[in-house]
Simulated assay, not measured.
Amino acid sequence: MKTFFTWSMLCLLVTISCNANNKPNSDLAFQKEKNHLIQTTKTDPNTRNIQVALLLDTSNSMDGLIDQAKAQLWEIVNELSYAKCGHNKIKLEIALYEYGNDGLPSQEGFIRQVLPFSDDLDEISKELFALTTNGGNEYCGKVINTSINQLGWKKNNDHLKLIFIAGNEPFTQGPVDYKDAATDALEKDITINTIFCGNYRQGIETMWKHGADITTGEYSAIDHNRETVHIATPYDDIILKLNHKLNGTYIYYGRQGAQKRQLQAEQDSNARSYSSANAVSRTVSKSSGFYKNKSWDLIDAAEDEAFEVEKVAKDELPKELKGKSKAELKQYIAEKSKTRKEIQQKIKELNKKRVLYIKENSKKDDTNLEAALLNAIKKQGRKKSFSWEE
C-alpha cells in the first residue's frame, strides 16, 4: 500500500447536471431560479459534445502531475476550442475525480467526484487548484467504474466520450477488475486513455497499456515531475491588458452573480501564479466559444432567446444598473456585448501571432500531460469526424 497519487486531470470530468451531488437547499433554490430565467434546452441535434473525465490520483507522489494539470489547463482548452465537426456546434464538458488519497472515504474506495460534467471553466479551474495530495490506495478499476456509472454520458455515439486516468501504481489494484470496467466503457462507446507517470516499459508491465487497449484508447508514459515551461512572447502584455478590458464587460446578476464574478478574478490570479504566459493562455480561453457564463453574466445570458432580463430582480443586479428601465438595460447589454466581441477578436488575432512565435522558439515536448491528452483527443476525435484547425 504505497503512498502515491494518480490523478485524473483535466478532469476534466463534469457537467453540472446529473450528480450535482449533495447540494444544500439554497443551491437547489438557485438552480430553480436559473431554470426560470433560462429555459433548460433539450439536446441540440446540431451540437457535438466533447466529454472528458479526468481521473487524478492524489496520493503523495503525484504533486508534479497536479502541477502540470494546473499549468497546462488553459493551453489544453485553447487547443480543443479549435475543434470542428461539420456545421455542428462544439460543446466541451469536463468532469474531475480524485482517487488514491487517504483523506477520501474508504467505503467509497478512496474516490471522490470533484465535479460532474461541467462547461464552467472557472469552476473547473477552482477545483483543480484546490486539490491536495495524501498517501492512499489507488484503485484504477474502481474509479473508472464509478465515473462511468455516475456521470451524465451522452448516449448518442456521435459524441466524443473520453476517460483519462493517470497514475503510477499497478492498474490491477482494488475491488473492481479493470478489465470489467473497460469492457463496460467499450459497450457505452467511452474510450479509456491511460497515462502512466513513469517508465514506459513499467507502465506496460503493470497493465496500464492493456487498460487502454481494451477500448482502443491511447497509452502514454510521461515525466510527471517535469516543470512546465511557459514561453513568453512580445504579445503577452497587450493580451493581458485586453483581459482587463474584457473583464469589464461582465455584468453579474442573480443571487450568486457577485460570487461568480469574484471566482472569475480568482482564477485569473491562479493562472498568473504560474506565469504571465499562463495568464495569457487563460485570457485566450476566455475569448473562445467554450467560455460562457449564462448562469451569472447578463451578456452571455442574453444570447438565449428564452432569457427575459425584466425577470431579474433589481436587488440582484449591480448597483449601477438597479435604476435602469427595461429598455435602458437592453441597450446597456447590447453595447457591452459589442465591446466584448471586439476585444475577443483582438485577442484572437494577437494569439495567432503568439502561437506562431511559440512554435518558432520552442522544442516539441511529447512527454508531458498536455501532449498526452491532446494527442489522444485529436486521434480519437478524427474517428468521429472531428477536426482541428485554428
Results as ranks from 00 to 15, higher is better:
residue 321 L to V: 01
residue 60 N to E: 03
residue 346 K to Y: 01
residue 279 A to S: 15
residue 35 N to Y: 07
residue 383 K to N: 13
residue 195 I to H: 04
residue 251 I to C: 11
residue 271 A to Y: 02
residue 321 L to G: 05
residue 44 D to S: 10
residue 369 L to I: 09
residue 103 G to L: 04
residue 34 K to C: 04
residue 361 N to G: 01
residue 330 K to S: 09
residue 196 F to G: 10
residue 3 T to S: 13
residue 92 L to V: 04
residue 215 T to Q: 09
residue 57 D to H: 10
residue 49 N to R: 07
residue 275 S to H: 02
residue 98 E to G: 02
residue 356 L to K: 15
residue 79 E to Y: 13
residue 214 I to T: 05
residue 207 M to K: 13
residue 155 K to F: 05
residue 47 T to S: 03
residue 240 L to C: 04
residue 363 K to D: 15
residue 45 P to A: 08
residue 379 K to G: 05
residue 183 T to V: 12
residue 153 W to D: 07
residue 37 L to H: 08
residue 371 A to C: 09
residue 219 Y to L: 01
residue 220 S to Q: 03
residue 244 H to P: 00
residue 49 N to Q: 11
residue 292 K to I: 12
residue 55 L to I: 14
residue 5 F to P: 00
residue 42 K to W: 11
residue 265 A to S: 12
residue 185 A to H: 03
residue 373 L to V: 13
residue 390 E to G: 04
residue 347 I to Q: 03
residue 174 G to P: 03
residue 142 K to N: 15
residue 80 L to R: 05
residue 279 A to K: 15
residue 301 A to Q: 02
residue 292 K to W: 01
residue 12 L to M: 06
residue 258 A to S: 14
residue 257 G to F: 03
residue 342 E to D: 14
residue 343 I to N: 02
residue 105 P to S: 09
residue 69 A to V: 04
residue 240 L to E: 00
residue 90 I to R: 07
residue 111 I to D: 00
residue 94 I to P: 07
residue 50 I to F: 05
residue 160 L to C: 07
residue 87 H to E: 13
residue 311 K to N: 15
residue 194 T to S: 14
residue 306 A to L: 07
residue 367 T to C: 05
residue 300 D to R: 03
residue 255 R to L: 14
residue 309 V to F: 09
residue 41 T to M: 05
residue 371 A to G: 11
residue 358 I to D: 01
residue 169 E to C: 11
residue 307 F to R: 09
residue 388 W to Y: 10
residue 107 Q to D: 15
residue 207 M to C: 10
residue 271 A to C: 01
residue 363 K to R: 06
residue 256 Q to K: 12
residue 251 I to D: 08
residue 12 L to N: 09
residue 380 Q to S: 06
residue 349 E to G: 00
residue 272 R to S: 14
residue 33 E to D: 13
residue 149 N to T: 02
residue 366 D to H: 09
residue 157 N to L: 08
residue 216 T to K: 06
residue 14 V to I: 09
residue 321 L to N: 08
